[in-house]
Design a protein around this nucleic acid. Sequence first.
RNA 1: GCGGCUGUGGUGGAAUUGGCAGACACGCAGGAUUUAGGUUCCUGUGGGUAAUACCGUGCAGGUUCAAGUCCUGUCAGCCGCACCA
Length: 824
Amino acid sequence: MERQYNFKKIEPRWQKIWAEKDAFHVTEDPNKEKFYCLEMFPYPSGKLHMGHVRNYSIGDVLARYLHMNGKNVLHPIGFDSFGLPAENAAIKNQTHPAVWTSSNIAEMENQLRQLGFSYDWDREVCTYKEDYYRWMQWIFIQFYKHGLAYKKENPVNWCPSCQTVLANEQVVEGRCERCGTEVTKKSLSQWYLKITDYADRLLEGLDTLPGWPEHVKTMQRNWIGRSEGTEVVYKLKGSDTPMPVFTTRVDTIFGATFMVISPEHPMVEELIAGSPEEENCRAYIEQAKKQSDIERTSTVKEKTGAFTGRYAINPATGEDIPIYLADYVLMGYGTGIVMGVPYGDQRDFDFAKKYDLPIIPVVDPHRDDIDINNLKEAFSDDGTVINSGKYNGMDNREAIKAMQKDFEEAGFAVPKVNFKLRDWLISRQRYWGTPIPMINCPDCGWVPEKEENLPVILPTDVEFTGKGESPIVTSKTFVDTVCPCCGKPAKREVDTMDTFLDSSWYELRYCDNKNDKAVWDREKADYWMNVDQYIGGVEHAILHLMYARFFCKFLHDIGLTKAEEPFQNLLTQGMVLKDGKKMSKSIGNVVSPEEIIEKYGADTARLFILFAAPPEKELEWSDTGVEGSYKFLGRVYRLVADMAELTAGIPKRYIPEGKDDKQLAYILNNTIKRVSEDIQKRFNFNTAISAIMELVNEMYRYKELEDINLGLLADATEKLVLMLAPFVPHIGEEMWEGIGGEGLVYDAKWPEVDESMLVKDSVEIVVQINGKVREKAEVPAGLDKAGLEETVLAMDSVKALMEGKNVVKVIAVPGKLVNIVVKG
RNA sequence: GCGGCUGUGGUGGAAUUGGCAGACACGCAGGAUUUAGGUUCCUGUGGGUAAUACCGUGCAGGUUCAAGUCCUGUCAGCCGCACCA
């Protein structure tokens, strides 16, 4: 074994050997326990960035560690390769998106191989390829057949820059998530997936996922936004037209002094037609329509509205209340109509103040600091019901139940659950995506393409102008077809699917990626699913992770998988920062993985990124830190090279004799214990690596001693190499070969802890006086409380400290400390 | 506004169950090797002091023999949602 660590020679060599041996290939094996380790697949933007390196290094350590522990590990990779950037590049360079995409994929595959990740490349999936999107289309048709895909004309979020619609989830603060352009509204006929049918199950499913970070589950819960309440039907005065409202606080209904309806509500026309306030209202509606979401939400506090001139009858009191238009009521939530209770709701309170509407106190908080007849802000907490007829004096939470019961019997209310979650708009007016396999027939309406005709191939004869509707309309061959139902001429849907669909089931396709008869074989999928560990950025906490859960539940329901949740455990990795900021081209603080690999090698890059911070935390990039990791690898390499020479042919059996032998044996076995626990239980790779560093330091110390046990050193060296291998696989293989290890270190067995080496004769305990450390003492291990107390109090040094003081109390914790509480 | 997370040396971070705060590294200082620089190896390194004492985990309280860890309040930063009735 050379003494000089030469990563430029080592790394390509082992990458070649792994490829030749097909070392990372896995198949289903019912006799072995499986482990499905998955990292979020990348978008092929061109080159890997440090976030990728971090994500995939974390996954690779786990995959390799579990493989060494005898698990049958599925560790696949692929590319989420449909999407806008390819199309923009096509417009700019006049190349086909497929050309841009495939060359980027080739480059990124190459980089992933250079980093030594243990992927089963045979299972690679690329979402832009026919053998993938064919099944995407097939799944869409299943949604359609089960009544979960529908087309509807609706005002939608429109990005004028991307020239396409966006899902609610893709609008961030009124702007396009992707390009930051202000989003406008446009009325379009679009395909939706009925994710709202799964709202409750998506919520309940979160409780079955203890292995998910709490904050991610909270985000999803908030997004789904379940709220329990009551739907109460008011009637329009002068007609019997019902006006249902949704409220979570039916107990405040006696305080409803007005009603508010969203200006977009279809009923508005009936309300204002012929009203003396008609003109006013039309002006208000026009103005509301013109406002973008940004304007509408930026003026959060200031409420606006217009009186319709009409009244509704409060079914609880029989009283008339005025009906207003106001844009603070959203058409998309509840019924689009709200009962205005200024006493109990801050928004209604603001509105009532502005339009001088009465405020009736209906819940008494019994608090001195609140004057219920002269509120400064709405009171929305609990208390005793007042001014509410027969409900007076009840606890308001009880009143909710009582009123729900009474009102339901009276026939004007029902308990109701509402969600913030909206159906998922999946049509995109873009080219580079999966064609929606639907056909519009003048006689039969929308009909899915026959399954045996799939895939509906994305045409290549299109023009990329970047304007208007989907570029697919420019295809001469695509649009015209025949109806699968009646055979008459019909037209194909030209929109493509949101790329989030592609990534909502890829974990299942990895289980059987080459299947051309079915989306996958159920038996294979059931062997591998669920994903035991999923790793990726927290930015996908809502969108991707909820869509994938939705898909999985649906696919479960139609009998395609036993899994009800796709990802059993989730690790959200922190961002990679430089100078406290996210790496970005515009700031110019990007460190490319390429230059690091070139300068220090892949192993150093991996080691540093795992050592610098625990995986969930943000990671501050440090050039000197990288240097340090590189030096450590050199230090280990020299140590192992020396050991290979020194202990060649020495059996790895030993009996530790002296103090130093015992110490090294103890540290060695303790390190194995710590590293195993840190990897598997805590994902704290940073502390796992520091434990290994401590072992290396100890071995350096030990080998310079006079009377050393070579069997012990040989054993320590072997185990050191085994423990390092998952983190730094290339140097791991090289050192394994150097010390005469059999086969690949990748396939070697993870070292076991010899518990007998962890038994100590004596332990150091701390002696505290009044909680301050005053003394340390070496006592026999296993000494009990009483013995410990006795031993410590008998010590001369302790006696000296106690001189002239009275012992009040002694607390003895075996193996840890003795605290003597004294007075005087 | 609501919800969540995080505050520890010059820096990244450790302390897993309330039990020696600062493991491991970076940086810095000194020494050895070297013609020199680099590399490598060793030593030191929270503040404070001659040395002790003492002070130290954002801040202010509290519980406890004992608090970075538990409780109450508060400040700062980050993230998510945001007129959801």
